[in-house]
Amino acid sequence: MKELLKDLNKAFENRVRLGIMSALMVNDHLDFNTLKNLLGVTDGNLASHLRSLEKSEYITYTKVFLDRKPNTRYSATSKGREAFTKHIKAIEQLLK
């Protein structure tokens, strides 16, 4: 049991962070507002969770301009993808 638990990632214990990663796993990139609508959270809440995922280097962002408006696109890093896959596998093992 201990073995299994070590693969469970603290970073994904939170619902919002779990949601962000799930969405970024199946999309090349998503912008801030799309994520906000998808998860139904406030600006501040989403921003703080995005920042914490950035800190763990699980996601990265690029800023582009659309019609002169700044647009931040988030995407998952390979490190993030790996960590997320491990986390899911650990959950599946746990539920067996």
């Binding site: 779990l18 799930s22 969405a23 796993m25 199946v26 999309n27 959950i91 746990l94 539920l95």
Partner: peptide, 22 residues
């Protein structure tokens, strides 16, 4: 219970993946 929470997590992951990509 722990298990319950993780089951819900999995459901949520599936739901978000579907909603965000399709």
């Amino acid at each position: 219970m722990e298990k319950e929470k993780y089951l819900q997590d999995l459901e949520e992951i599936k739901d978000i993946m579907n909603r965000s990509s399709r």
